[in-house]
């Protein structure tokens, strides 16, 4: 009759298999999981750079001041001072990089003006609204209101 751990060789074999399995798991895991996973949290740190990579489409109003000083100054004095240039003239990052690329669009006033200024349920009381059929049934808004400085008189 064997004494002590004499009958335990099957336990050692199992322990050996367990260790081999563990090592295999760690090797496969280190191959599959990117090195930067877990750097800042439970995610791949490189995903931050991926999200930053995308090109900018709207240049931002600051970019316009470099060349269009006159229009920017006029707008800054009027009621439309807070509006970004690209809100009416379209996305222009390509144009800001290369002035020859993509001209700013000239907005259709009866669409662009009215999307804000037509009276509608929901508009706050401080905001100037019109009912276009009563206020100006035809013709461009710019006949009376200069878009960059819209006050009349």
């Amino acid at each position: 009759m064997k004494e002590g751990l004499g009958h335990a060789s099957h336990l050692f074999r199992m322990a050996g298999l367990f260790v081999v399995g563990l090592v295999l798991f760690l090797v496969v895991r280190s191959l599959l999981v990117p090195a930067d996973f877990g750097k800042y949290g439970h995610f791949r740190a490189g995903a931050l750079a991926d999200n930053r990579e995308k090109p900018v489409v709207y240049a931002g109003r600051q970019a316009c001041t470099d060349c269009h000083d006159e229009a920017v100054t006029r707008k800054a004095a009027g009621a439309h001072a807070g509006i970004g240039c690209e809100t009416c003239h379209g996305a222009l990052a390509a144009h800001a990089d290369d002035p020859a690329a993509g001209k700013p669009q000239r907005p259709d006033p009866r669409v662009t003006c009215l999307v804000c200024h037509e009276r509608n349920a929901g508009k706050p009381s401080w905001f100037k609204v019109i009912v276009v059929e009563e206020h100006a049934p035809s013709g461009p808004c710019a006949d009376c209101h200069a878009p960059h400085s819209p006050a009349v008189g």
Binding site: E53, Y58, G82, G84
Partner: peptide, 22 residues
């Protein structure tokens, strides 16, 4: 993404940039 590609370059988001009433 809160326009992560813009705000990390010192710009504001596209929606805030184009909000006419602030």
């Amino acid at each position: 993404t809160l326009c992560y590609h813009r705000i990390t370059r010192g710009l504001t988001t596209a929606c805030a940039e184009n909000c006419p009433s602030g």
